[in-house]
Simulated scan of single mutants.
Amino acid sequence: METAGIVAEYNPFHRGHAWHIAETRRRLGGDAPVVCVMSGHWVQRGECALADKWLRAALALDRGADLVVELPTPWAMASAESFARGAVSLLAATGVVDVLSFGSEMGELAPLEEAAAALDAPDYPERLRAALGRGLSFPAARQEAAGAACLSAPNNNLGVEYLRSLRALGSTIRPLTVPRQGAGHDGPSAGGYASASELRRLLRAGRGAEAAPYLTAPWSGEFADMQHIERAVLARLRTMGEGDWAALPDGGGAEGLPSRLAKAAREAVSLEDFYARAKTRRYPHARLRRLALAAFLGLRAAERPAAPPYVRVLGLGGRGRALLRRMKDTCPLPVIVKPAQARELDGPARTLFESEARYTDLYGLCFPAPRPCGAEWIHSPVVGERA
């Protein structure tokens, strides 16, 4: 029986995510184990996750996942290329995953594989520079340089990066794509499904009853929100010089960008104001959000390893335990199940875990009532009720 791997944020976990897990299992024979690589407390949009990673892992386990492991923050909060490389590296490292399943607007592999090959072609960098030189935004220039219309859709784009990562790693994991259901990325509800961004908006606005039909379980209580740390982020940005901006990951040192960011940070009176002042066609909003949050968290490009150096388990069910037993023989990385095991790490792995603990401490400030430090060192994985 093949084991499936899925990469997700589950922010929040909704009916579309449950459908993806069920459809993946159906295509693989009905009872395939599912390993999810899930972002932790900070996500690719350059913001805090709606709820903590242990709650989100529990919801995934309740609706079909067997094992949930964490994509560490330096990859979870990165460009599509780095996000995919980190996640695929983790799935490959487990040694138990046979298939990588991902949703896409296209719903078929061939066009995505063609786009991946075009992005890896020797002449792609030159074609990209030419398109950027004509004033195109980076996404538009990338699409034109690759000659791939499918790159205009966000889930297609991420799927292409998964394919590129599998190829770059020489992985034997087989890709599988399923069509995204209902609502488009960042779009309103459709076909019985709602986008995660729409659900976050409703939940944070206290309109849980409107979100409920699209969720797999009720969400209540306090939700994390960037508004609670906005001044703290701005305070950090105002202290940064051009050299500090240039040290950030995923292009903080791009030509002309550090000086633009430093100037915007000195003038901005809100985060949205900062993004508006720094934004250009070449430097879109999402990239600026990630850079601002990386600055706040203290992420530096030089400190991110080439790949995640350990596997951190966030949640597991009965079959997840069986997968973990297999991983004792198949996974070359340390597998962290209990927090105490992290104290045995050394080198880059220990450094990364300690950084992750700091990122979690800062995440605790994103709630109406701030949470105390130390959560990373006391939380064991959540245990699902499914066999």
Score class of each variant (00 low, 15 high):
residue 163 L to R: 07
residue 150 C to N: 10
residue 110 A to G: 04
residue 87 A to R: 07
residue 103 G to Y: 06
residue 114 E to K: 15
residue 132 L to W: 13
residue 104 S to I: 04
residue 83 F to D: 09
residue 92 A to K: 15
residue 137 S to V: 01
residue 116 A to W: 07
residue 118 A to C: 04
residue 132 L to D: 10
residue 151 L to S: 09
residue 122 P to F: 07
residue 123 D to S: 14
residue 132 L to C: 11
residue 160 V to T: 06
residue 153 A to D: 13
residue 144 E to L: 14
residue 92 A to S: 15
residue 138 F to G: 15
residue 93 A to Q: 10
residue 103 G to W: 01
residue 160 V to C: 06
residue 97 V to H: 07
residue 128 L to M: 05
residue 95 G to M: 01
residue 86 G to C: 11
residue 136 L to S: 10
residue 113 E to L: 07
residue 83 F to S: 06
residue 125 P to I: 03
residue 90 L to V: 12
residue 124 Y to Q: 11
residue 106 M to R: 06
residue 87 A to G: 08
residue 110 A to H: 08
residue 114 E to F: 04
residue 118 A to R: 09
residue 104 S to R: 03
residue 156 N to L: 07
residue 147 G to Y: 13
residue 156 N to D: 10
residue 151 L to T: 12
residue 91 L to G: 02
residue 150 C to L: 14
residue 139 P to V: 03
residue 96 V to T: 13
residue 104 S to D: 07
residue 120 D to I: 06
residue 136 L to A: 13
residue 106 M to Y: 00
residue 87 A to Q: 06
residue 98 D to S: 05
residue 146 A to G: 03
residue 95 G to Q: 05
residue 152 S to Y: 01
residue 163 L to P: 05
residue 83 F to Y: 15
residue 100 L to R: 02
residue 155 N to L: 06
residue 100 L to T: 02
residue 153 A to W: 07
residue 147 G to K: 12
residue 106 M to G: 01
residue 95 G to E: 03
residue 85 R to A: 15
residue 114 E to I: 07
residue 121 A to W: 01
residue 116 A to T: 09
residue 100 L to M: 01
residue 100 L to K: 03
residue 88 V to R: 01
residue 84 A to N: 02
residue 134 R to I: 04
residue 107 G to H: 00
residue 117 A to F: 11
residue 163 L to V: 05
residue 101 S to M: 11
residue 136 L to Q: 10
residue 91 L to V: 03
residue 163 L to A: 05
residue 86 G to D: 08
residue 97 V to Y: 02
residue 89 S to R: 14
residue 143 Q to G: 14
residue 97 V to A: 04
residue 159 G to A: 03
residue 85 R to Q: 15
residue 127 R to G: 12
residue 154 P to S: 02
residue 88 V to I: 02
residue 152 S to A: 15
residue 112 L to N: 08
residue 112 L to G: 10
residue 86 G to Q: 14
residue 109 L to T: 06
residue 144 E to S: 10
residue 112 L to S: 09
residue 130 A to W: 11
residue 112 L to D: 11
residue 145 A to N: 15
residue 136 L to Y: 15
residue 94 T to D: 04
residue 138 F to V: 15
residue 125 P to D: 06
residue 160 V to Q: 04
residue 90 L to N: 04
residue 83 F to T: 01
residue 132 L to E: 06
residue 109 L to G: 03
residue 136 L to W: 15
residue 123 D to P: 00
residue 117 A to H: 12
residue 121 A to V: 05
